[in-house]
Structure formats: C-alpha cells, structure tokens
Design a protein around this nucleic acid. Sequence first.
DNA 1: AACTACACTAACGCTCTGTT
DNA 2: AACAGAGCGTTAGTGTAGTT
Length: 386
Amino acid sequence: MKRPNLVVVHRTEITSACIPLSEKLADHHAILQGYLDTHVTRNHSKRTIDSEQQFLKGWFEGFMVQDDQHPDGERSLMIWEAMTPVLGRQRIIEFSKGLITSEFKPRTVNTYLGKLRRLFQYVLDNPYIPGNEVQLIITKYGRIEQPVKEYDYPVHILDPEDEGFVLTGKQLTQFYDFIRKEYISHNPKKLTASRDYTMIVLAGESGLRANEILNLDALKPHRDIFYEHNCIQTRHGKGVKGSGKRIRKTIFTPLAQATLHVYEEQIRPNFPNAKSNPALFLSESGERISYQAMWRSLHVIVCEARKAGLELPHSLAWHSLRKSFATNFMEQNPDKIWVLMDMMGHRNPSTLHCYVKHSRSYYDRVIDSIVKNLGSSGTFMVVTKF
DNA sequence: AACTACACTAACGCTCTGTT
DNA sequence: AACAGAGCGTTAGTGTAGTT
C-alpha cells in the first residue's frame, strides 16, 4: 500500500477561519521552504534534499481536513495544525500505527517519523513565519508543540542479517564464464552485452558500487583508469552528512585489466560520442549509462544464467557483487583487513563486520582447521584436575 | 571512572515498480 | 527506453546500558 493511502485520521474542523486560505497556504509553504533551505546550507546532496521535499510535501497533502472556505470543502493539512497540542500527536500516532499494520518495515516507519520530527523541531526552534514583518506562529495560529514523541517509534529496528547474497569465488568465475561464452555469443546486441560484461567484471573484481561504475571516466580531464598503477579510482564515493563525494582508489586485478583493455580497444569506440563523452560506459544513444539501464542489464543476465542452470543467490543485484568482492578478498587475504577497508571506502572497521558475509561452510572449514592445529600443538591442555 | 558492546540516527545509495 | 517515486539498505557519527 502506498503511503498517502494510509491516512486514516478523522477529519477535523478548523475553527480559526478569519485568515484567508491563500495567506495560510503561503505561510505553510514559507515555513516548509525555510526548513528545506537548511539542507542546502548544510551541504546535503541533491538526492537527499529532493527526497526530503518529496516526502514532506506529500505527507501534508495526504492529510485532508475539512474547511468550508475551500471550494472542495476540504484541503491539505498545515504545519501548525500538525503541531497542535494533543491532536497533532494523535495524528502522528495514527499515522505510525497505519504504517505498522500495513506491514511496513520498522526501519521505514522510523525513517518517516524521523523526517517529521526534525521538521517540527526546526519549527519550534524558529517559531516565526518568514516574511517582511516579524510574526510569531503562536500568536497567529495558536499553540504548537513537538507532536512526534519517542514513545511513538519502533525500537530494535535492525533486521537480522540476511544470508545468501554473496557469490563465492567459484560462483563468480562461473558467472563471468556464462556471460562471456553463452550470453554474449547468443545476444544479437554484441556491443551492449560486452559492455555489461565489462561492468560486471569490474564490480566483482574491484568492489565498486553501481553508482561509482557509471560515473567512471575514460577520457580526460578525469580519466579514472590506471593500468600502469594497477588501480582504478572513483571520484563518486558515497559521502555522509554533507561531506560531498569521496575519492578513493581500489584494486585493478589482471582479469579486470584484460577485460577493460579489450572493452576500451574494441567495444567502446563503436558507441556514439565515444570521442566526446568522457564516460567509460555509454548507452546506445551515446550518453553516460543510467542506473536503470544497469539494473535492467544485470536483471536480464541473471535471469538467463538461472535458465541455463547456474545456481545463484535468490537476490543478486549490483551491490551483491560488491559484497562478494569483500567476502572473497577477506577469505584470500585474512590479514589485509585494513587494505580492504581502504579499497571499500570504509571509515570504520565495524562496517566490515556486517558487510563481509562468509558462507556457513567457510566458518565450518576454518573452525575445523583451527581445531586440528590445536590438536597437534597441544595449546588446549586436557584438564584432569580442578 | 573508564571501558565494552552495542543500538540509534541521519544522510545517502540501491532496488524495483508503475507510468508514459 | 526513460523516468519518477516509494521503500528500504548502507555507513559513519553519536548515545547509552551494562561491566570492570
């Protein structure tokens, strides 16, 4: 069910009717815009600002209240009405309950309530209506308070870790082989199929995110491929809290180098704009490839691979390749954890803990070998007396 | 009081569906 | 094919219950 349909609170009569509707609307938008503007000042990414705006505007428009002033007899909710003592909180509780009973993930409920709480906190900290004259919201529209209370949040929102999203080294090789030998040769569009293969090898061998792959450049001034140094750089690493995009370097394995070399020599030059568009991976129309196109490509290839009998995790997406890279690197180089962290762009070792997903058989194998070693060296003495 | 071991928050990316 | 949008996962900074 979509969020706007979850609004089930009883329609309420608004009594302070002496202010013209247009003025109320203008005040509402001015306050909301004031909050959204703080995201710009705080250097948040465009994506964050857009989704914040999308959600908040949608939330207020989704709540209809009765208003005889309005030609339709009802209109969307205003900020100060959402913050009315008692009634405002009731509305939040109903909203929260609606999401839970519709089986939204607690994580999502928490996210939405957080977005609302931060807006309302901003309004309480800046209780004025933006404009030429100084006007308090309270004197014009009555008392307001924070309607989102800690009691209305789900807690323990983190899911137990999923299993089965990671390809072992062997599965990864099989997957590459399938694409190269079967998928490309049976596909009439050799160019795009080869391009998709190159992107997949790059994801599996270097651990790059989908967004980082599509933003790689082949042409100057920002060429990101360094054969001579065995490394690839990304200038679009995920940032956090207004940090902006982050630059980092990651490993460029012999397989990835050989694959990319063939791609750059024989495949990429055949795409339109190959000499003018700096993007390493182009679409058939000569633009930088889009995330949606990447998603679709991988989706199709995975479906074909399953039809051909390959055993793949039930959910295999671009990010699974990044996880597979991390897990396989860790299994082959157990002592190089700091190197892996650096290549993944992690600032905090705790991130790897939930990121590297060893298979159950890996744990069994390693535990088994540890016990065997103990048996021969006698580190664990047999206790006969206490 | 210092430490440990987590949990929570917020920004931001990924996934997938619906629409045109 | 391209795009928009909703839901939810990822990551790093911060907070806190429980232990030493």
